[in-house]
Design a protein around this nucleic acid. Structure first.
Lengths: 340, 340
DNA sequence: TTGTACGCGTTATCAA
DNA sequence: TTGATAACGCGTACAA
């Protein structure tokens, strides 16, 4: 069944059928109804490939993310897909892993599919060494690139991100101001956003005229999902003589590992130890006591990203960099500061 | 840049360029090299839409899942996408939600995109009332349908699933045989696989010549991710006089809620209360003590699903129903039975 | 308001 | 080994 068959059955030309399909109003109602009924009776659907060839778009958008089974990235993908579908776009999902070559290959694979736009979810796609970002710059001259939680300044690249620097600074200040002095900062990545978080942590001490002891920034060399590993990592730090009365982690998994350490040791939380995670994921409600965490308003970020994406594709001029603030959500693993 | 431009620059016909692109061997090496160098110098990529129009495929596969931010479904999507990409397919992800009409619409949207195959992830797409499954049967006459963790017998429909019935039975037997008598079964869905689990729970009592007290099957009317809600639900059951020395839950979130109840009440786990979840997700390692859980070998299921999918698309004859067993993974919330 | 005819960029068939 | 050309099915100027 193609547009010719329909046109014959309806006794009109293919042009008229096309007009009906695409909702043009310069068709006599009687003709339109005739065509519609023929289409319905034949269960006709226009061929998407032919349409794509003519219009040079199939209204599809590529989503790249390192690992869509990661809770945080999965949520981002979910929000983005939801809003794009609402806007009539299909999403081609590609999980790239964290290897740069795989990422490069995934990008060109999407480009060869002629997607309308490519969305990079997470900050793992950009490199500190800017010449390694050439693959993104190159792509941006052909197709708009959207980045979530990372930033690159270039024509055709649009970024939406959370101010991880300030959010982490705020959380650190909160710990300091609640009386904590030895704040362990746990992290396990040197990505763009991870670096912002570390800097935010350090900046808090300056702000309070304290010196930041670098021994308190501890890199866990492994997956944060290795809870047991994180737990014994923290325990090791303790046994090596590092004293701390608070843990701030760059994601909720790391924080859960630290919390597990405390529970096993019989350390009272938050009386003796404060713990703060990052992402305010479901994990914060699973743990007992519930974990305080930084919320970076992922849904809001995604909604804005899609808005900018759609706007750009419609030819509107859109902001190239959009930054939202984060928020410290106090649950049960932090002390509340007395308001003055 | 299209195939005409390349053919002119290379001084050959479009047919020859096409042959080079598609790796046919009936091209003189000198000609091939000439064409390849021109393509490379121009950075030429064949137009995917035109190719799709001619070949009637763009090697893309539709993945439908109710909610890709659900930890379990997200993992499934991840595994499936990974293996399909490996096989040269693109994945169009569509999150449908749990509403039947949205699901129907999503399915037809994917069909209109001319995907090569449609994969239904999770058992939420099939209805107990078989006439409501017509939308799937209809689709299966146009495009192969793969189902993960659900089963429908029909030409063109291929199912890969875990034997949730036996897995749940095994877990229940394990609890009984470890001396538990009052086993609370927590569930929050009546989906295809949920029903299998409930039946499995009931069957265990028969097997031990015990009667299954229906008051111990408790439906939690809400999202299992509402941990606090689950926790107070379990607490209410207790306060209403229902005594139990074990909790078996149809997913890990429900189990975590039950565990939270126990921790808050000071009930010793597993000495006084056994808890078993389902899915063996990362949650089982986050909780303290670590949660025993049923593992349904999701990765294995997905790998097989993709194999069958690829095989079917290659014209091979593939099994329409593939069932794998589950496995009870003992962590810290269950008693170990002495081996005889 | 409707119809004709061409272009979109490939692949594949057939002939040379 | 290569080339000419007909599909593939749609959208859309342009003509009527």
């Amino acid at each position: 069944m193609n547009i010719y068959d329909i046109s014959k059955l309806a006794g009109v030309s293919t042009a008229t059928v096309s007009r009906v399909i695409n909702g043009f109003d310069n068709v006599k109602p009687a003709t339109r109804n005739k065509v519609l009924s023929v289409m319905a009776s034949q269960g006709y659907t226009p061929n998407a490939f032919a349409r794509g060839l003519g219009l040079n778009t199939m209204k599809s958008i590529g989503i790249m993310c390192a690992d869509s089974s990661d809770m945080y990235l999965a949520k981002a993908v979910y929000f983005i897909e939801r809003d794009l579908r609402e806007a009539g776009y299909h999403c081609i999902l590609t999980c790239t892993g964290y290897n740069r070559d795989s990422q490069r290959q995934a990008l060109s694979s999407l480009m060869s599919q002629h997607v309308d736009c490519i969305i990079l979810v997470g900050s793992t796609f950009i490199d500190k060494d800017n010449k390694n970002n050439k693959y993104i710059y190159d792509a941006s001259s052909t197709v708009p690139i959207m980045m979530l939680n990372a930033a690159l300044e270039h024509k055709g690249i649009y970024c939406v991100l959370c101010d991880d620097y300030t959010a982490t600074q705020t959380a650190t200040l909160d710990l300091i101001d609640s009386g904590r002095r030895d704040i362990l900062y746990l992290f396990n990545s040197y990505s763009y956003s991870a670096e912002k978080k570390s800097s935010g942590y350090r900046s808090a001490f300056e702000l309070r005229n304290m010196t930041c002891d670098e021994r308190y920034l501890q890199f866990f060399n492994g997956s944060s999902q290795d809870i047991e590993g994180v737990c014994s990592f923290v325990n090791n730090l303790h046994e090596k003589g590092l004293n701390f009365d608070a843990v701030l982690a760059s994601d909720d998994f790391l924080a859960v590992g630290a919390l597990k350490y405390a529970i096993r040791k019989g350390i009272r939380v938050p009386a003796e130890l404060s713990v703060i995670g990052y992402n305010n994921s479901i994990l914060t409600n699973c743990s007992e006591p519930e974990l305080s965490s930084i919320d970076n308003h992922l849904e809001l970020l995604c909604q804005n990203l899609v808005k900018i994406c759609i706007g750009t594709l419609s030819g509107e001029s859109m902001p190239q960099k959009t930054v939202f603030g984060g928020e410290l959500v106090h649950k049960k693993t932090t002390l509340r500061i007395e308001k003055e």
